[in-house]
Amino acid sequence: MKLSTRDIARFVARGYLEFPALTPADLNQAFLDESEHGVVPEVAAGTPLAGAYPADSALAHLYAYEPVRDIIESLVGPDPLVDHHFVHLTLGEEQRDALGITRPVPSQHWHQDSTIDTRAGFDVQLMWYPHDVTREMGGTRFLPGSHLRIVSEAAIGRYQNIRGQRHVVCPAGTLLALHHGIWHGGGANVSARTRHMVKVRLNARVPQIRLWDTSDLEAADFEQRPIFWATTPRADDDLHAILCEYQPWFEADTGRLEFINRIRLFRHLLGDSKFDADYWCTRLELNAGRRDEAASGVREL
């Protein structure tokens, strides 16, 4: 089942979608066996996903698994390119002892993957956790809603803890689908067991316009409602409310800019340059034209 418009709006607002215990136990175990035996395949960057992996490999089975395929296709369309994948291992105490490592590896600094990226669309990054992850195992730390900030990779590494940050604590088979820009870092594993996480980055090969199940999109989603002086509570699935969801780390002024940037991304995905949520963009587009340009025009007259 493909994602809904509400799912896509949540992805646009938060920069991720979480699917707990999505993949079956035999698939999870198959990957762990491959990882243990060092036979996780390599794939050249830019290879179309279909046929990129040996048919009998766990990762090929992961992409063929219908719920995973539907998530991928809803976000980046059919047969995207494999940018890369990486198996993240965070050693637990048992394996550290075996290797003579006396301390847990410190948690990873905050970073945004790749480098400064100004594209209108996005790559999706799948994070797959094939076994249970406890808090002690240092599951990925990430900052909901940070994905539209254009920063340069590890330049954000001096931030330590940010209000609203999340740590992945999840059952086996959990999949996260993330916008490529989300701020994240691996946690320190202070448990006995080694933590596995597979990250896969996929690039769209088709315009990322209405790739999901749009059957829940209604005329009311395109209408404006009272704002600020608004006493009627919004429903949880109200599209505008989803897109204008507040994050605890927002600065008093720039949080509003996050709303604007989310709306612009949603417009891009919707293929509709007029869509707005809570009037944030429309207001700025009325009587369009720049003040400085208008001023120079007056002088010419």
Partner: peptide
């Protein structure tokens, strides 16, 4: 900067 007024990046304060 003109043209990037709504772009967010590093934490401001």
């Amino acid at each position: 900067y003109p043209g990037t007024e709504t772009q967010t990046a590093y934490l401001k304060y």
